[in-house]
Design a binder for these strands. Sequence first.
DNA 1: ACAAAAGTGTTTCAAATACACCCATGG
DNA 2: CCATGGGTGTATTTGAAACACTTTTGT
Lengths: 230, 230
Amino acid sequence: MEEKMYHYQYPHPAVTTDCVIFGFDGTKLNVLLIERGIEPFKGRWAFPGGFLRMDETALNGAKRELYEETGLKDAYVKQFHTFSDIGRDPRERVITIAYYALVRISEVKGGDDAAKAQWFPLDDIPSLAFDHDRILRHATAELRKQIHFEPIGFELLPEKFKMSQLQHLYEAILGVKFDRRNFSSKMLKLGLLTELEDKVTLANKKVAFLYKFNPESYAELKEKGFRLEF
Amino acid sequence: MEEKMYHYQYPHPAVTTDCVIFGFDGTKLNVLLIERGIEPFKGRWAFPGGFLRMDETALNGAKRELYEETGLKDAYVKQFHTFSDIGRDPRERVITIAYYALVRISEVKGGDDAAKAQWFPLDDIPSLAFDHDRILRHATAELRKQIHFEPIGFELLPEKFKMSQLQHLYEAILGVKFDRRNFSSKMLKLGLLTELEDKVTLANKKVAFLYKFNPESYAELKEKGFRLEF
DNA sequence: ACAAAAGTGTTTCAAATACACCCATGG
DNA sequence: CCATGGGTGTATTTGAAACACTTTTGT
């Protein structure tokens, strides 16, 4: 194998992108972790990630990793922090540009590669490789912050959902409880939801309304300056 | 001169930190720009920045640049985004980890180095080097977002300030106007301000109350979950 | 004369919150 | 028979918003 090398007049750190993938199981927020197959931290769980290619932006790198692990191409992906501590990778100086993605667990296909991937609820995370525990704390904090400004919760739900599902999601992200009636009326008053014709028949024969998120209404509201005040 | 080189098996991008320095002149938000002395973009204005050293974190790099241009060591400095577009620097692939700093204009000393530095109000920014116009838009958007979660405005004001100064600052950051009485009562109800004994005698012999930010009260409030709802 | 800055209270309307009952099913 | 999940409405409290007049001085 050819030992092609790259030369620079000044030292350059390595740059990676990591992608924290969030999913919602109806009750709890989950993240998708990969079991590392190589040293360092072989056998430990970590976020999908890899070296940034010279011909892609960091965002595309994160999307590529998301695709490799989930088969998804069009998920919501957002950069939230870049980690640069010295010694965070034992091999060399590594800068990691970190993203989080919001996906529907049901749409996730097993990864292309042989890596073992598994969903873990946020309150039961195993010991992680590198400084990924810190990355995870950052990711959840930023997600919680972002949901005040953008209706990103819908990225985690099926296209059609019950009001109670939406409520449980907000409760999981923000770590609070809402009154069912107050949550529903407040959410409907925002005008972001369309009530659908079809209702779902539950196990107990009750029918429940289904809603979908309405991006057009959101676009209008955004013009007028908009705050999602949950 | 010795041609010492650094070798890597894979290509590595260069990594820089840039620091957008915000100040408040009593009416408008300003940023501190440096006139570039070398190519590329020689003569154009840009944010202070430079290559990340191998023995410092990105945060320390940003603080170092802040110190070099202002003499300040203890300002509020926050990472807000990392820019990785291909071709954003014509010389080589450069990743920029961008921070913003909040400083008191009155405390800024001229920079150590010979660089020409100047304050510009946000609504009168000259043509900038690289993609720094994009970086600036990002920085102001993130500042506006962050002020909903942290009382960072006080970093831009003198230790003792009049309520009207604080109001003008919030108006400048958020781009809205507040009613004087409503702003004052709302701000005081938050319990973050201490009313000082000394008042200031204005040009017109009126006396105005002076306030200072009370970090202890803020720490208490933060425990209880806190939202700065302006 | 008038504009600029500062102090001071009240009223009105909107929003957040708290809260109770009914129904049907599955275990 | 009780826990679960779903539907529905009202009363209270709190917070937001709108609003006018006075004083003094500098221009």
